[in-house]
């Protein structure tokens, strides 16, 4: 049973690398601010810095505070999480790694009658609701501030500053991917004592980097070109707003989704430009996925454990 959680964590870390590099540096690569090779190296470095400097709080929340961990809970939860994440990536459905892992841990814990800390769970659920809204308002404020300051500069200067800002916001997202996303994956196995913390940090960051090198190229091309074709000005406000928001929640030890924060940020900037620019249908689908992902993970783990025991 012992290798199963580690193998599942390896798969999830690779998947995070393949998908989340585009969250962080897709815009920069699409804008040719930085080459793919340099972007991936930068991403890997900041993921490692993120987990080293700020990963422990989120790791404690996920690995210790939610459910009383044992090897069965860990094995089933991470295996189901890895499968759900891989299937959703394959089917191109947006799911949050955090939601799937936390849904799985809670489902397994409940099925085995383990001590589930509903207080912590409620705090996490609350942070999932608040974080996209916080990103919504943060992006809105950043966009307004840019309009008041940056817009007054000459065109060429704005172009240069936006390049620097886009790279800075990409680095923040890379950092929070380490401090929050990777911490969510590593928290359960470190706190269960399956792996030494230092090795987990290095190995985890390397796997995320490997996922970025091997699997992220196509996704980055699609997302990078797609987003930048819209508007780098709004793209920065949304990404930076989301990055600041994830950074704040990471400091509070809350495992939250970068993707949902970026969606919140994009919606905020879209609202500022006019409600017509926001696709309500798409937001409904995202909201449905937001509810379905943890629910499905919970039910799958619960059913598997109840069937097996």
């Amino acid at each position: 049973m012992q290798p199963i959680p580690i193998i599942a964590s390896v798969l999830i870390a690779l998947s995070v690398g393949s998908n989340d590099t585009s969250n962080a540096l897709g815009i920069c690569i699409g804008c040719r601010i930085i080459s793919f090779r340099r972007a991936v190296i930068l991403f890997g470095v900041f993921v490692l810095i993120g987990i080293l400097l700020q990963g422990r709080k989120v790791m404690k929340t996920v690995g210790k505070d939610i459910v009383e961990m044992d090897l069965r809970i860990l094995g089933i939860s991470l295996l189901v999480s890895a499968m759900l994440i891989i299937i959703s990536n394959w089917k191109r459905l947006p799911v949050s790694t955090h939601q799937v892992i936390i849904g799985s841990l809670t489902g397994s814990g409940t099925a085995l009658g383990a001590d589930v800390n509903y207080g912590s769970l409620f705090e996490i659920l609350l942070s999932w609701v608040i974080s996209p809204l916080a990103a919504f308002f943060a992006s809105l404020i950043i966009y307004r501030a840019m309009e008041k300051t940056l817009s007054k500069l000459p065109f060429l200067q704005i172009e240069r500053i936006i390049r620097v800002l886009l790279l800075a916001s990409g680095i923040i997202i890379a950092y929070t991917t380490g401090a929050n996303e990777l911490a969510t994956i590593l928290g359960p196995i470190i706190h269960a004592g399956l792996i030494d913390e230092a090795w987990a940090f290095l190995g985890g960051a390397f796997l995320v980097f490997l996922g970025a090198v091997l699997l992220s190229n196509r996704i980055i091309e699609t997302i990078g070109s797609g987003i930048t074709a819209l508007d780098p000005y709004s793209g920065f406000a949304a990404q930076f707003g989301a990055g600041c928001c994830v950074f704040l929640f990471t400091s509070l030890g809350m495992p939250i989704s970068t993707t949902y924060c970026i969606i919140g940020g994009i919606t905020g900037v879209g609202m500022l430009k006019g409600t017509g620019t926001v696709s309500v249908d798409l937001l409904k689908k995202i909201a449905l996925s937001w509810i379905m992902a943890p629910a499905l993970a919970f039910l799958t783990c619960f059913t598997i454990i109840r069937t097996l025991t």
């Binding site: 040719r32 172009e159 780098p232």
Partner: peptide
């Protein structure tokens, strides 16, 4: 060769 953001 890469002058300006692709958007422009």
């Amino acid at each position: 060769e890469g002058a300006f953001l692709p958007f422009l």
